[in-house]
């Protein structure tokens, strides 16, 4: 039985098991997938907090959008979810924690590399490897030790279909990924991300470098991804947030100002600062 078949027939391993902690993740399965509690973060060894006591819960299999002006901390928070900030020597979590299905991702036993398989990321600019389309998608699985061609073939096809790219590339899987258009490259990066079957997909302005047609295709894909994954997207495009997300969080100067359903936040926000920002009146 291939790995893909196993996934469909067996329950997915709990996040708690996959990141080797002993927390009570199962309790949270039907609630928040990511739970952020009073999280403060500093880029300068704790001298100043870029994020200030952020608390929010990201629900499972929903799309959550982070909005706010540049420098408000939304991308920083996103990078906290898969410990991307660990690569900055002076960066520190100064307070609080982030839990995925109940397990603290900053716990001492957590391997950031394994965490990033569970919490994948798609960046602003598509970044395919200078390899074939096939190898780009199979890359994560090969790193994880998968060698069987039949398993890889199946995973590549499934991931490319999941990223709405299969029909466009199925006849040229061996060609260089760098020959794809910008929109196709971004979808290839999404395929590469979902090939390792993460729980969460983080997207940092995934459409900002794409034309309107490619943007529409990726946006439609994001709404589809929700069926299998939990998506957190940072966007400067508020219309995009209204189109693709179920929940929206508005940040300003490192603080979470308002977090609500997208429908509520964009039609009747409860905080005036949110209203001023989303309606273009930010002073």
């Amino acid at each position: 039985m291939s790995k893909q078949d196993k996934k469909s027939k067996e329950p997915k391993p709990k996040a708690t098991e996959r990141i080797d902690t002993s927390s009570d993740g199962a309790r949270h399965l039907n609630e928040a997938l990511l739970d952020v509690q009073k999280l403060s973060f500093s880029y300068d060894m704790g001298k100043t907090d870029t994020l200030k006591k952020i608390s929010l819960e990201i629900p499972k299999q929903k799309v959550t959008a982070f909005i706010g002006p540049s420098g408000c901390g939304k991308s920083t928070l996103l990078r906290c979810f898969n410990r991307m900030n660990d690569t900055i020597p002076t960066a520190r979590i100064t307070h609080g924690n982030v839990k995925i299905m109940g397990a603290d991702i900053y716990g001492p036993k957590v391997d950031p590399i394994r965490l990033r398989k569970q919490v994948g990321m798609v960046f602003q600019k598509s970044n395919p490897f200078p390899k074939s389309i096939y190898e780009n998608v199979a890359f994560g699985l090969r790193i994880a030790g998968e060698r069987k061609k039949s398993v890889l073939d199946e995973a590549v096809e499934k991931s490319l279909k999941g990223a709405a790219l299969w029909d466009e590339v199925k006849d040229r899987l061996g060609e260089s990924a760098l020959g794809l258009s910008g929109g196709q490259q971004q979808r290839l990066c999404i395929a590469r991300t979902i090939a390792v079957e993460p729980e969460v997909i983080l997207m940092d302005e995934p459409c900002s470098a794409l034309d309107p047609i490619a943007t529409a295709v990726v946006e439609e894909l994001i709404t589809k991804l929700r069926e299998d994954f939990t998506v957190v997207i940072v966007t400067h495009n508020m219309q995009q947030a209204t189109r693709v997300s179920d929940h929206t969080a508005f940040f300003y100067l490192g603080e979470l100002i308002e977090y609500d359903t997208t429908q509520q936040l964009f039609t009747n926000p409860s905080i005036k600062q949110t209203e001023d920002y989303i309606s273009g009146r930010f002073g």
Binding site: E255, L256, I257, E258, I271, K272, Q273, R281, F282
Partner: peptide, 13 residues
């Protein structure tokens, strides 16, 4: 959560 903005009549950009 941050406190509400004090501004009352901001003009649209």
């Amino acid at each position: 959560m941050a406190s509400e903005s004090e501004s009352t009549d901001l003009r649209h950009s």
